[in-house]
Design a protein around this nucleic acid. Structure first.
Length: 234
DNA sequence: AGCACA
């Protein structure tokens, strides 16, 4: 049955997600996966009984959401085919942006009190708020240089294995798989316990590895971590 | 199956 009765929305609703995946990893992986369609403003996932296995991805453009809905239908994500629809309502983060946000209030007094307290605490901390929406990420960016600018190490010749650097330490191989398996010829991700921040990704051949490198060069899993992709040294 | 914004 097509979910065709939901009008286009810049937010998408994703369900049939693997419930074993931790919330933060899930959000990051969704971010990684969907940022190929456009700028992502927010990813929302809750693990409450009612909301586990579901998530919302908020794009800055409806067209991005439309492409995602069409193209990511049944995409195998953590071993489960994801179901993607438009969200039924506007996300808070876009309501806030267009000024139509009204805080919902279905709380009893006690909860409100706690809420208020929390907010004032937040206000104090928001000195360092360089945007809690750290997802103002921008997704893939053009190549950049990092690390050994001076001491010019010889680059490995193109081959079927990619060497990834500058990954956030929370990166898991599943997260990288999610990203790289979108490209034809993907074989596997290898990470080394003792060496966080790097990974190897193998493709069937060097043409395919090069396509993935091109597409994901500089990709940011977090804003601070544009990934540096090179060919592995054999 | 399940449409929220901790």
């Amino acid at each position: 049955m097509l979910s065709g009765d939901i009008p286009p929305n810049q937010s998408i609703y994703v369900k049939n997600l693997n419930e074993k995946v931790k919330k933060e990893e899930l959000k990051r992986s969704l971010y990684c996966l969907f940022s190929q369609y456009g700028r992502i403003l927010d990813v929302v996932a809750l693990k409450t009984p009612k909301l586990r296995g579901q998530a919302w991805v908020v794009f800055s453009e409806v067209t991005a959401a439309s492409n995602a809905v069409r193209q990511m239908q049944n995409f195998p994500f953590y071993d489960k085919p994801m179901r993607v629809q438009y969200a039924k309502t506007k996300s808070d983060c876009v309501a806030k942006a267009d000024g139509t946000f009204v805080p919902r209030e279905k709380k009893k007094k006690q909860e409100e009190k706690a809420e208020r307290k929390r907010r004032t605490e937040e206000a104090q901390q928001s000195a360092n708020a360089n945007g809690r929406n750290a997802e103002t990420n921008g997704g893939p960016t053009p190549p950049f240089r990092q690390g050994n600018q001076g001491a010019r190490e010889a680059e490995a010749a193109p081959n079927n294995i990619l060497f990834i650097q500058n990954l956030p330490h929370q990166t898991t191989s599943m997260m990288l798989q999610v990203l790289f398996q979108q490209y034809p010829g993907f074989r596997e991700v290898r990470m080394i316990e003792a060496k966080p921040g790097i990974a190897f990704v193998e493709f069937e051949d060097d043409v395919q590895s090069s396509m993935a490198m091109e597409a994901l060069q500089g990709f940011k899993i977090t804003p601070q971590n544009p990934m540096a992709i090179a060919y592995a040294k054999k």
